[in-house]
Every structure is written in structure tokens, then in C-alpha cells.
């Protein structure tokens, strides 16, 4: 088929396109959050002393970290799904969460005696954390990869990694309500590992399913 024939065929098809991309992303996040909440309440549930914990800075910080991560990754993922959009600034914004975490770790190192550092870092729930953050984040990640598949990421692997961060942020937010290891040292170690798993999965998934 020559190009002018192709143009004629395409031009004849001006049906309404699908939902605009920003709406698609917001819809995806709402569904992902409900999905994560469903999985969380079905298999984990909040920790029994959550009311008392909510009065401590360490417990609250976990949500601050997860929210910063998810929010910044959301903006970046949305930009990465649109050809020609400037995603570099949004990518810089993602550094907010690790920066916050680094500051919290430094504060914690001052607050605890060096003898207590290792115990705080290892905690009691390392493996639980490594299991449930990815488990809760898996559904959201699948939803985001589907959005990437429907949109047009020109850097599929990067977009998939950022989708993994977004899913990781949501998974970490939910899991944080269950876990009673609140030290930033624990968060920096185990949450990071768990989220890195989702990032790797997102990159691999997107390079396979988000090509167009």
C-alpha cells in the first residue's frame, strides 16, 4: 500500500479516541489503591496497636516516604507514557523520597546508640516485608503496565521501572500499616529491597509488553 492510500484510510477513521491519557492514569491509580487495600485487608490487616503507633514520628514517617515515592513516580510515569513529554524534571522529583529517607536515617543514627543500630536495621519482619510489599504491589504494577501498553512510552524499560516505583510506593504504604518495625534503618534496608524487586519486574514487563 502506498502512503497516500494509507493516509486516506486513516483519515476516514476519526472515531473518538479512547479516554485521554491523564484520565487513564488517574483511573489506574484509584483502581490500584483499591486493589492494594483489598489485598492488604484480606491477608494482612493493620497492626493491633495502630492507634498508639500513629502518635510516633517513626511510624508516620513510613507513610510520608511511601507517599512521596508514589506521588513523584506517578508524575514521571505519566510523562514517560507520552511521546515527546519532558520526563526528566519529573524523574528528578523522584529523588525526594530517597532524600527524605536518607535524612530520617541520619536522624535515627543520632537518636539510637551505635549498639542498637544493627538490631534496628535487621528488625523482625525483614522477610515478611520482602514478601508482602511485592505481593501487594503486584496488582497495581499490572494495572500500570497495562496503561503503558495502551499509551506510547518511547523508553519502555524506563517507564516500566518508574511504574515499579509507583506500585512499590503503594505497596509500601499499605504494608507500613501492618509492620511494627518502624525504624528508618529498617525501612531503608528492607523496603528498598522489596521496591527494587518491583522496579526490576516493571522494567522487564514493560520492555516486553509495552512495545508498540
Amino acid at each position: 500500500m502506498n502512503t497516500s492510500e494509507l493516509i486516506k484510510k486513516l483519515a476516514a477513521d476519526t472515531r473518538r479516541t479512547s479516554i485521554p491519557l491523564p484520565a487513564m492514569w488517574w483511573g489506574a491509580v484509584v483502581i490500584a489503591v483499591f486493589f492494594a487495600a483489598g489485598v492488604f485487608f484480606a491477608i494482612l490487616g493493620p497492626r493491633p496497636d495502630i492507634a498508639a503507633a500513629a502518635a510516633t514520628a517513626r511510624f508516620l514517617f513510613k507513610f510520608l516516604f511511601a507517599t512521596a515515592l508514589a506521588a513523584s513516580a506517578f508524575g514521571c510515569a505519566a510523562a514517560l507514557s507520552r511521546p515527546g513529554a519532558n520526563w526528566h524534571n519529573a524523574a528528578l522529583g523522584i529523588s525526594a523520597a530517597p532524600t527524605l529517607l536518607a535524612m530520617a536515617v541520619i536522624a535515627e543514627l543520632f537518636a539510637l546508640s551505635p549498639a542498637a543500630w544493627l538490631a534496628a536495621m535487621i528488625g523482625r519482619n525483614g522477610l515478611v516485608c520482602m514478601t508482602y510489599i511485592p505481593l501487594i504491589g503486584l496488582g497495581p504494577l499490572a494495572i500500570f503496565l497495562w496503561i503503558l501498553h495502551r499509551s506510547a512510552p518511547t523508553r519502555p524499560a524506563v517507564a516500566g521501572s518508574v511504574a515499579g516505583l509507583l506500585a512499590g510506593g503503594i505497596g509500601a504504604f499499605a504494608y507500613a500499616a501492618h509492620c511494627n518495625d518502624d525504624s528508618p534503618l529498617f525501612v531503608a534496608t528492607w523496603y528498598s529491597l522489596a521496591i527494587a524487586g518491583l522496579v526490576a519486574l516493571g522494567a522487564a514487563g514493560a520492555s516486553r509488553f509495552a512495545r508498540w
Binding site: 500500500m1 502512503t3 494509507l6 486513516l10 491519557l21 491523564p22 511521546p83 515527546g84 513529554a85 499509551s151
Partner: peptide
């Protein structure tokens, strides 16, 4: 040219109407 035109057609919902169109087109 043809592959790009087809991609433009299938992915035209990824263009934001208030965003410049040339960067979008060239990126595709």
C-alpha cells in the same frame, strides 16, 4: 513514514491538546 503514520493514528490519544505537537510527532 507508514509505520509512524499508523502509530500516530493508534496513539493519537497520547497527545495532550495543550502541548506542542512537533515534539510528540518527532518522538514517535
Amino acid at each position: 513514514v507508514q509505520e509512524t503514520l499508523l502509530a500516530i493514528h493508534l496513539k493519537r490519544h497520547t497527545w495532550r491538546q495543550d502541548a506542542p505537537i512537533l515534539p510528540w510527532l518527532y518522538a514517535i
